[in-house]
Amino acid sequence: MNSIAETCNNLKREYDGCFKLWFSEKFLKGDLDDSMCSNHFKLYNQCLQQAMKDQNINIDEVNMAHLGTEQEKKTED
């Protein structure tokens, strides 16, 4: 799957590949250490943050957490 910025595609692909492996082979098996892909993520994220800035994406709105906060909508049960 492509990144929002073409320039980040390669870095994203490398990170995604690492994450898939980590998620199924480590995390789901109880290994909570998430350092395995952190270098990949750092590089990809640097590229992505710049791209979001360039594309005038409201980063505050993106980063504002809703899930697990007061912002989260309540189910009617």
Binding site: M1, I4, F19, F27, D33, F41, Y44, L48
Partner: peptide, 10 residues
């Protein structure tokens, strides 16, 4: 069109 991971942490 696109899919990006903005943040991720355990």
């Amino acid at each position: 069109l696109t899919e990006d991971t903005i943040s991720r942490k355990v």
